[in-house]
């Protein structure tokens, strides 16, 4: 059974020091909170690449396929016959293909962000604090009960102004 600690940091470099110390001490389950995305945090955490791009690619490919398909299939099924002209003509249908690619690709990208970020969240998030949307940085650490004291000392040592238990 793991228990949680929330630490509040007013300074960015203090937060980054604490992240590096936690990683060094092999604390594996922790979440960082920041009022704005910062490269310093990314360098300290070295997180994996977001998978959003795969959703974008798949959404775009599905969109362009659907766009061409709907135009070609409906032209063949309900033909508008004009002498000497192709019933399905891929050049003007590229516009439909492109627009539907952008539409489905963009919506898939947003859906990917929602899925990967686990939003919409309908319940309170353990470890989050209103100060983290304001001006302060935060870390929520999950650890075995016997390691909590050590974690608290480490967070305070690196500049946490408040550390409290939460689960």
């Amino acid at each position: 059974m793991r228990q949680g600690l929330v630490a509040v940091f007013p300074q960015l470099d203090a937060l980054c020091d604490a992240i590096e110390a936690l990683k060094k001490a092999k604390y594996e389950q922790f979440t960082v909170y920041t009022p704005a995305p910062r490269h310093e945090i990314e360098h300290a955490l070295k997180p994996p690449m977001s998978p959003v791009r795969r959703f974008t690619l798949i959404g775009g490919l599905l969109g362009v396929t659907f766009g061409y398909w709907i135009a070609v299939w409906t032209s063949e099924y309900w033909p508008l016959v004009v002498g000497g002209k192709a019933i399905a003509s891929w050049i003007p249908y590229t516009i439909i293909g492109f627009e539907v690619m952008v539409l489905v690709g963009a919506l898939s990208t947003v859906a990917a962000m929602f899925i990967n970020s686990r939003i919409p969240k309908l319940t309170m998030t353990v470890g989050a604090d209103p100060r983290f949307t304001h001006g302060d940085y935060g870390i929520f650490v999950l650890a075995a009960p016997e390691r909590l004291k050590e974690a608290e000392a480490m967070l305070r040592h690196h500049g946490a102004v408040e550390v409290r238990g939460e689960q």
Binding site: T31, P35, L45, S50, T109, N116, K121
Partner: peptide, 21 residues
């Protein structure tokens, strides 16, 4: 706000999403 909490994973996916959009 859809329960947005400013966590690092949220920002990581958000910034990629914003770039691709």
């Amino acid at each position: 706000s859809l329960g947005w909490r400013n966590s690092e994973p949220e920002w990581r996916h958000f910034t990629r999403m914003y770039l691709f959009l």
